[in-house]
């Protein structure tokens, strides 16, 4: 399974593609379950790059664990959850509060 991710051009915020728009939380991302869907995401990513909406576009591998999206690589898990330090700030603080 794969997701399409990038950084937003204007502020660099990590974003994921979610059926027509780029969102700031990985939980809302559109999952490609097969090769064809992944290729379709790749086309969308290239167009978004060309349209100057996002930069550093990548398809990433994920698993579903306990019903939640879990990127295979630690790098992507940290992009999704924010730094593992300074839990008083930003995305990592919001996730903690929500939990």
């Amino acid at each position: 399974m794969k997701l399409l991710t990038a950084n937003r051009l204007s502020d660099g915020e990590a974003v994921w593609y979610a059926d027509g728009l780029w969102v700031e939380t990985i939980a809302e991302a559109l999952i490609a379950h097969d090769k064809e869907s992944a290729e379709a995401l790749e086309v969308i990513g290239n167009k978004a790059l060309a349209d100057n909406l996002v930069v550093d576009v990548n398809l990433i591998d994920i698993e579903i664990i306990d019903g939640s999206i879990h990127p295979t690589r630690l790098r992507e898990r940290i992009r999704a959850a924010g730094p593992t330090i300074r839990n008083d700030l930003g995305k990592q603080a919001r996730i903690q509060q929500a939990a």
Partner: peptide, 14 residues
């Protein structure tokens, strides 16, 4: 151009 002016893109932001 951005690198010449000290701007990198990292994991979460510039």
């Amino acid at each position: 151009l951005r690198l010449m002016n000290g701007v990198y893109l990292q994991l979460h932001a510039y």
